[in-house]
């Protein structure tokens, strides 16, 4: 038996693909922004916070980094309602991604903070800057410049990982692919095209992150 590829079978479903793509983009952007905010707080607490808080952050980071994203997602979506916390698919997906990226970026940003020379912090303090000012203008600024490439890669990994949220019926790009192939039975074509859309998305995201980095993050 020979199977004939028929990519035109996807055409009637372009609106589903576009909606899914849009969902994936919005989900990635929002969870990146919030996730990095969590990571910044986490890294600051881990290096400058009281011992108990630093310990707590460490447990959070290790727990998330050593368990699969899909299990975290299932725990949030199926597990938490048992405690009375019921979340919609989209909220659960967003929350899982924020928690996941938060842990990874905590670890990445912490490495950046530790690379800032102690003398810079002392210099800031001697200029009568408050602790918060030192953190913001001296420590974090330099830390971000140093770890920006690593953070960018992690954001792309999280974007690709977001395909998993289709499993709790969050209507992302992969969800659209599953829907379409259940209608037209053209699994290979659908998944190949969607995989290529992800590839383009990853390339575009890498480019956008580089432009943002050149414009805002560089210390010079």
């Amino acid at each position: 038996m020979t199977y004939k590829l028929e990519f035109s079978a996807l055409l009637p479903y372009w609106e589903d693909l576009a909606a899914g793509l849009w969902f994936t983009i919005v989900l990635t952007v929002l969870s990146t922004v919030v996730g990095i905010a969590v990571g910044t707080l986490g890294a600051s607490a881990r290096t400058f916070g009281p011992k108990w808080l630093a310990g707590l952050v460490r447990v959070y980071v290790e727990l998330i980094r050593n368990t699969p994203f899909i299990v975290q997602l299932f725990f949030i979506f199926f597990g938490l309602p048992a405690l009375g916390l019921k979340l919609s698919e989209t909220t659960a997906a967003f929350l899982a991604m924020v928690i996941n990226l938060g842990a990874y970026s905590t670890e990445i940003i912490r490495a950046g903070i530790e690379a800032v020379p102690k003398g810079h912090i002392e210099a800031g303090v001697s200029l009568a800057m408050s602790r918060l000012e030192v953190l913001r203008h001296i420590v974090l600024r330099q830390a971000f410049a140093k770890i920006y490439p690593a953070l960018s890669s992690q954001i792309i990994i999280v974007m690709l990982g977001s395909a998993v949220v289709s499993q709790i019926s969050a209507p992302d790009l992969t969800y659209a692919a599953n829907f379409i192939q259940s209608r037209n039975f053209r699994a290979f074509e659908v998944y190949l095209v969607v995989a290529l859309i992800y590839l383009v998305l990853a390339i575009v995201l890498r480019y956008v992150l580089r432009v943002i980095g050149d414009r805002f993050v560089k210390v010079g």
Binding site: L160, G161, S162, A163, A187, A195, Y198
Partner: peptide, 24 residues
Amino acid sequence: IEFFQGTPLLMQLFLFFFGVALFG
């Protein structure tokens, strides 16, 4: 490398599992 690093692992699994089966 670009393909396997730039697409979700889930898509790759689907391509192998559902996709290849179509070719018999």
